[in-house]
Design a binder for these strands. Structure first.
Length: 154
DNA sequence: GCCAACGTTGGC
DNA sequence: GCCAACGTTGGC
């Protein structure tokens, strides 16, 4: 089982939105970056656990945990001309973009801000703490996962 | 709202 | 296949 970090702008879709979704589950659509796409399609498996990260918020940071309940399958919003994430190059033969389904697990008692992550020497090689890191989906090592879980109660 | 980083596109 | 132009992300 692997760990990941997914970014979302809370003004677009927050962890509270997920908690209030039917069955507390949603499809993680709209990823339009090949590196992230490859992870969604090839690497992210049912049962994997994910930190839910709020970007473009005050402050940005990890706000809780979700889990993957359906591994990669074609992101159908790419084929919907009415979708904000429409991509005319996506077809049912060649869907181009992929998504997974995630389910709410827990919201942290407090958000763990990006500032706080950056102060942790154990997390200095984490993708999300690197300057200019824009990838919306990144792998998290078991060591980083445990370190961050312990921060919640620190 | 600014801007640095960086991914994507398209002309050549 | 290079690379300049352009668009997007996301912290600040």
């Amino acid at each position: 089982m692997n760990h990941w970090l997914f970014k979302s702008e809370p003004s677009c879709f927050s962890i509270d939105d997920l908690k209030q979704s039917p069955n507390q589950t949603t499809y993680w659509d709209g990823v339009r970056n090949y590196q992230a796409r490859n992870m969604l399609r090839d690497d992210i498996k049912t049962g994997d656990t994910v930190f839910f990260y709020h970007s473009n918020s005050t402050p940005p940071g990890i706000v809780g945990i979700v889990k993957v309940v359906q591994a990669g399958y074609p992101d159908f919003t790419a084929q919907d001309p009415l979708s904000d994430h429409y991509d005319p190059k996506a077809t049912s033969e060649n869907p181009r973009w992929y998504m997974v389904d995630v389910k709410f697990v827990k919201k942290f008692k407090r958000p763990i801000s990006l500032d706080e992550l950056k102060t942790q020497p154990k997390l200095k090689s984490m993708k999300v703490t690197q300057p200019g890191s824009r990838l919306s989906i990144t792998p998290v090592t078991a060591f980083e996962w445990e370190t961050i879980l312990r921060l919640e109660d620190a």
